[in-house]
Design a protein around this nucleic acid. Structure first.
Lengths: 116, 116
DNA sequence: CATGCGGATCGAAGCTCATCGATATACATA
DNA sequence: TATGTATATCGATGAGCTTCGATCCGCATG
């Protein structure tokens, strides 16, 4: 493991120092990158609303109920759901013709804890 | 104010219903959109790391200390800091030649509470 | 087996974003 | 006033994203 510790090399006016050198370990870098992945998935109004709807319905919600909530085509909603699933934020389940989505509460807890 | 309540119009096989109709008020829609704006700003690895570094240094951190933490040009880091400031996540302060950034804890609390 | 339906995938179009070098701005020192 | 330094802004470029219509896949019903 490696840390970055950088002493500024430039001369400072009057010999002042602007602040203490910053250290940023690789472990925290990796965690921050994972959290950025989750935040990126949530960083679209449609997807944030999808998550909001899903978590307010304790059970699993059918895609056919989600599509008409937005002024978007069915393929577009399907695309957003896929992005959320790829980020580990939601899960899905097929029952016959229908697909049901639900929020993975661990993922939400993970990101909200990290940010708090 | 208006809410969306959509009864599915398609016929269902065997007369089954896939799930309860979903209601999504405009107020929650607006809040979700604001949260998406914040999440979008955090949805980049560089910006998430910037926030992580800033909040771990209770005080304010000079830009000249932030730039060398990344393998990026100074204009690029400046661009990311601006995005974070536009989203209300960080604040900045000038002292002579130097600029100091800090995390706005209210904003972090707002998003983490919303997600939890 | 044929038809219909819900949902996912594909390919394209248009827009946004991250990044850079160059340059501008503002302040500090000599 | 002239020079140097820290940061911000500008313009361009290439990658990625959202969105759509068209199409494909599975399952259910007749």
């Amino acid at each position: 493991m490696q840390t970055l510790e950088l002493a500024p090399k430039q001369k400072r006016p009057k010999g002042e120092v602007c602040c203490e050198p910053v250290v940023y370990p690789d472990i925290e870098r990796a965690q921050a990158e994972r959290m950025a992945e989750v935040a990126k998935a949530l960083g679209d109004p449609v997807r944030m609303q999808l998550v909001d709807v899903l978590r307010k319905h304790a059970g699993k919600v059918c895609v056919c109920e989600l599509v008409p909530l937005f002024d978007l085509s069915q393929p577009t909603v399907s695309h957003h759901l896929k992005k959320l699933r790829d980020a580990g934020i939601v899960g899905s389940e097929r029952r016959g013709l229908w697909a049901y989505y639900y929020v993975k509460t661990e993922a939400m807890k993970e990101i909200s804890t990290w940010l708090s």
